[in-house]
């Protein structure tokens, strides 16, 4: 659990779920399960959020909303699909207005099954998601470092390439 060094904020959107998973997501935040003591707060603003919890599957009308929320979130971000409907459509898979799981619209990092997903399972999923978030953050940092050092190194690299020994190696 060493990777909970920051306070990740979550944003929750109800795709087309039956409310069952939504009230369980809220139950995670309230005194019985109380993840707020780790600084995990449910925010309403996508620009403040690190973890995107989606319940329910996507349909023609809400897929743009899901996409927009995802795009507004700053990098690094993690998507957790909560409940079987968000995973693949679940019991409503055969309904005419269901396109399938959330992963048909946005990339999903973590899947929490269950109908309705229990708070313990949701917390477990989010904790797994936080691991992925830490990895993504590290990757992003490396990329930024590389970009920075690349930019600095580029002018210096020119004379090195002129070195005949190096040039030979490159040819080989």
């Amino acid at each position: 659990m060493s990777y909970i060094t920051k306070s990740p904020w979550i944003i929750h959107y109800d795709g087309s779920s039956c409310n069952g998973c939504d009230i369980e997501v809220l139950a995670c935040l309230t005194p019985m399960y109380d993840v707020e003591r780790f600084g995990i707060i449910n925010t309403g603003n996508p620009k403040h959020a690190d973890v995107f919890l989606v319940t329910g599957s996507v349909n023609e009308q809400n897929k743009n909303v899901v996409k927009q929320i995802y795009e507004q979130m700053p990098e690094p971000k993690v998507v957790v699909a909560v409940g079987i409907c968000a995973n693949n459509g679940g019991i409503f898979k055969e309904c005419y207005n269901i396109q399938g799981g959330v992963d048909t619209v946005i990339p999903v990092d973590c899947y929490v099954p269950g109908c309705a997903a229990r708070p313990e399972a949701i917390i477990d999923g989010v904790v797994k998601g936080l691991g992925i978030l830490a990895e993504k953050r590290e990757k992003l940092r490396q990329e930024q470092l590389a970009a920075k050092s690349g930019a600095k190194a580029a002018p210096q690299a020119m004379p090195v390439l002129d070195d005949p020994a190096e040039a030979k190696e490159e040819e080989a």
Binding site: S17, N59, N62, E94
Partner: peptide, 23 residues
Amino acid sequence: IGFIHRGLEKLVEKKEYTEMVYV
């Protein structure tokens, strides 16, 4: 409205009447 319309009333055509309780 219409963001969470699933059309589950139509599922009666695919699920038996005893199964439909779950839906």
